[in-house]
Amino acid sequence: LRLEVKLGQGCFGEVWMGTWNGTTRVAIKTLKPGTMSPEAFLQEAQVMKKLRHEKLVQLYAVVSEEPIYIVTEYMSKGSLLDFLKGETGKYLRLPQLVDMAAQIASGMAYVERMNYVHRDLRAANILVGENLVCKVADFGLARLIEDNEYTARQGAKFPIKWTAPEAALYGRFTIKSDVWSFGILLTELTTKGRVPYPGMVNREVLDQVERGYRMPCPPECPESLHDLMCQCWRKEPEERPTFEYLQAFL
């Protein structure tokens, strides 16, 4: 395994491009020591290896001592969030954005069929390849993070704006909380990567959403798509659509 080009840095580690087995181009995620327990990670990795779908980033291998390494397929255009905010983002029109959403829903419909939960679905965790191919990455890892700023769910590192209220408040993460996050991801797509709930801080978002506030229809977004977002944001988790439905609708 060779680490060649550093692609990015996040709160919990770095991402590199490299070569595996001398020939395969891969992405390598390294986790800061202390982010998660190697034992817990190894268990999760076994499950992650079983998830194989064309719209999920394929896991190739893991190094399960500290520092933990995760070796996955390489996606040339990086994260969907950076892609939307970058040069190419300007030229993306609604049909392409909807197609990308459908690809993500397709990957998540598979996660749904496998009775698995992602827990951290957002544009930053979707990767883009050639020809606007989108794949879901980092599934299941969020559960293992041991950082206090994260586990408190009120901490600075927790993605509260993407998280369903029952998950943020009571830790009830299910495929239905993933559906909520998918609704937020749809706003990221239609606004080219704007942060959700602009002008609001995490605490406010939690309070307002509890009181029934939902983001309005983004500019140039059809009402039918906003309606779909609002279905994803129904207060009762069981009233939210399935990913199978979302995939078919898109």
Results as ranks from 00 to 15, higher is better:
residue 172 R to G: 11
residue 104 I to G: 04
residue 18 G to D: 04
residue 150 Y to W: 02
residue 175 I to P: 15
residue 55 K to Y: 10
residue 6 K to H: 15
residue 45 A to H: 02
residue 220 E to T: 08
residue 66 E to N: 15
residue 181 S to R: 01
residue 21 N to R: 09
residue 64 S to N: 05
residue 171 G to A: 06
residue 17 M to H: 10
residue 246 L to F: 09
residue 159 P to S: 03
residue 186 L to F: 08
residue 60 Y to M: 12
residue 35 T to E: 09
residue 180 W to R: 03
residue 160 I to V: 15
residue 233 W to N: 10
residue 75 M to K: 10
residue 189 L to T: 06
residue 234 R to M: 09
residue 210 E to K: 09
residue 128 V to Y: 05
residue 56 L to H: 06
residue 83 F to N: 08
residue 150 Y to N: 03
residue 15 V to E: 02
residue 174 T to H: 13
residue 24 T to H: 12
residue 154 Q to M: 09
residue 198 P to I: 07
residue 78 G to E: 04
residue 230 C to V: 09
residue 86 G to L: 09
residue 246 L to A: 09
residue 55 K to C: 12
residue 122 R to C: 02
residue 42 L to Y: 12
residue 65 E to I: 13
residue 21 N to E: 14
residue 104 I to A: 06
residue 174 T to W: 14
residue 138 D to K: 03
residue 76 S to R: 15
residue 218 P to F: 06
residue 195 V to H: 14
residue 137 A to E: 02
residue 29 K to R: 01
residue 244 E to K: 11
residue 227 D to L: 13
residue 4 E to G: 15
residue 30 T to S: 07
residue 31 L to K: 14
residue 51 L to C: 06
residue 164 A to R: 02
residue 230 C to L: 10
residue 188 E to R: 02
residue 236 E to M: 14
residue 55 K to M: 10
residue 168 A to I: 06
residue 71 V to D: 00
residue 211 R to V: 10
residue 211 R to K: 09
residue 105 A to C: 14
residue 112 E to Y: 15
residue 128 V to S: 04
residue 123 A to I: 07
residue 160 I to H: 01
residue 31 L to G: 08
residue 15 V to G: 04
residue 141 L to V: 00
residue 142 A to I: 00
residue 176 K to G: 14
residue 143 R to W: 01
residue 56 L to K: 06
residue 151 T to A: 06
residue 56 L to E: 00
residue 31 L to R: 15
residue 37 S to A: 08
residue 68 I to P: 05
residue 17 M to R: 14
residue 78 G to M: 06
residue 120 D to Y: 01
residue 57 V to I: 12
residue 222 P to R: 08
residue 214 R to I: 12
residue 186 L to H: 03
residue 198 P to V: 09
residue 10 G to D: 02
residue 45 A to G: 12
residue 41 F to M: 04
residue 166 E to Y: 03
residue 176 K to M: 11
residue 171 G to P: 00
residue 67 P to R: 05
residue 50 K to E: 14
residue 185 L to D: 03
residue 240 R to E: 01
residue 32 K to T: 04
residue 46 Q to A: 13
residue 71 V to P: 01
residue 157 K to H: 07
residue 211 R to L: 11
residue 127 L to T: 06
residue 50 K to M: 13
residue 41 F to L: 03
residue 137 A to D: 03
residue 189 L to A: 10
residue 126 I to W: 03
residue 11 C to A: 12
residue 113 R to T: 13
residue 194 R to T: 10
residue 15 V to Q: 03
residue 20 W to A: 12
residue 15 V to K: 00
residue 100 M to C: 10
residue 220 E to A: 11
residue 32 K to S: 04
residue 62 V to M: 15
residue 70 I to Y: 01
residue 65 E to P: 13
residue 51 L to G: 03
residue 154 Q to E: 12
residue 236 E to W: 15
residue 2 R to W: 14
residue 24 T to C: 08
residue 163 T to S: 04
residue 202 N to P: 06
residue 83 F to P: 05
residue 195 V to Y: 12
residue 128 V to M: 04
residue 11 C to I: 02
residue 127 L to E: 01
residue 217 C to V: 10
residue 164 A to F: 02
residue 138 D to Y: 02
residue 38 P to G: 09
residue 124 A to D: 15
residue 19 T to I: 12
residue 236 E to Q: 14
residue 128 V to A: 06
residue 113 R to L: 11
